[in-house]
Computed example of a mutant assay.
Amino acid sequence: MTMLPIQTTATAPVATPVATSTGDPALPLELLELELSLDGFSGDEASFAEAVRQAADQVGGDFLFDLPASGLAEDCLRIAALRVPKGENGAPTIVFALLDAEGATIRVENPDETTKDLKRFADAFVDVLQRI
């Protein structure tokens, strides 16, 4: 599935659903649903985590944690790790929700080379939770 750019206006920013990982040419349905549920975000940095938590719940996923982006991703204030079902069998996978530098929109990305260490941390976090 190829996603075309969405035109936006200055008063209503809209995230364009695109995959950023090297392995996936487009967002799977589950991630598209997540992206769309975050599309109407009108909060700020303080409400980011709650908005992402609710969106993860809507797609049957889990909110793991959020933290300041601190150079982990370009033009972002915060980054949240989520575990969402992927594919027909619903196997859980780690994705990231990123709050843009203006604090106005949230985009969803698959882990890539720049976030591989954060993905490993998220996997370890899940492993610890499963052992408890």
Rank of each mutant, 00 (worst) to 15 (best):
M3D: 12
D66C: 15
L129Y: 15
F41H: 00
T22Q: 11
G103A: 04
P111V: 00
G61M: 03
D123P: 04
L118I: 04
V95I: 07
E109N: 14
L32P: 00
P28H: 07
E30F: 09
S42N: 15
R120A: 13
G90P: 09
L99K: 06
K86W: 13
D44K: 02
E45V: 14
K119Q: 15
D117L: 09
P5E: 08
K86A: 13
P17N: 10
M3V: 08
D112S: 15
Q7D: 12
T16L: 07
T8Y: 03
D127P: 03
A19R: 04
L99V: 04
N110E: 15
N89T: 12
A104G: 00
E33D: 11
L38I: 03
G71E: 03
L32I: 03
G60Q: 12
A10H: 10
P25S: 13
Q130A: 09
D24I: 06
L31S: 05
M1K: 10
A55T: 00
L34V: 05
M1E: 11
T115R: 06
P5Y: 02
D62E: 15
L99H: 04
A97Y: 09
A104K: 14
Q7M: 13
S47V: 07
A104L: 12
R78Q: 13
P25M: 10
D75V: 00
G90S: 13
C76Q: 11
A12R: 09
V52P: 05
Q130N: 12
N89L: 12
G60I: 08
A104S: 13
D62G: 08
A55V: 01
T93S: 11
V59I: 03
D75H: 07
A73D: 02
R107G: 06
I106Y: 01
K86Q: 14
A49W: 02
P13L: 02
D24Y: 04
F48T: 00
K119A: 11
